[in-house]
């Protein structure tokens, strides 16, 4: 919990500084992307801090690549 809030605080602090700088330079799209990713990251931290399990992209990759995995196993190119 403590780590989560500290990280959150820090990222918002840095975010505020950087976003103001970007805004004044009229880089609106950058601000949008930055904010989006920042919110995503912070959300993940908060959720983790609350103990909610987050979806694991490694699992998605494994799911997507299962046919190829099986083929490689079959060929003997990998051994589990």
């Amino acid at each position: 919990m403590i780590t989560a809030s500290i990280l959150l605080g820090l990222s918002c602090l840095v975010g505020a500084v950087e976003l103001t700088r970007l805004w004044t330079k009229k880089h609106k799209r950058t601000v949008a992307v930055y904010a989006a990713v920042l919110i995503m990251g912070n959300a993940m931290i908060v959720l983790r801090g609350l103990g909610i399990a987050l979806p694991n992209p490694a699992d998605w990759l494994t799911a997507a690549l299962t046919p190829l995995n099986n083929m490689l196993l079959h060929l003997g190119l990998i051994e589990s």
């Binding site: 500290i6 820090l10 602090l13 840095v14 500084v17 700088r21």
Partner: peptide
């Protein structure tokens, strides 16, 4: 100003030593 902000962040970082 930017540098001072970064400095502040740097000073807070040691909490994670």
């Amino acid at each position: 100003m930017r540098h001072r902000a970064w400095l502040l962040v740097l000073l807070l970082m040691p909490m994670f030593l």
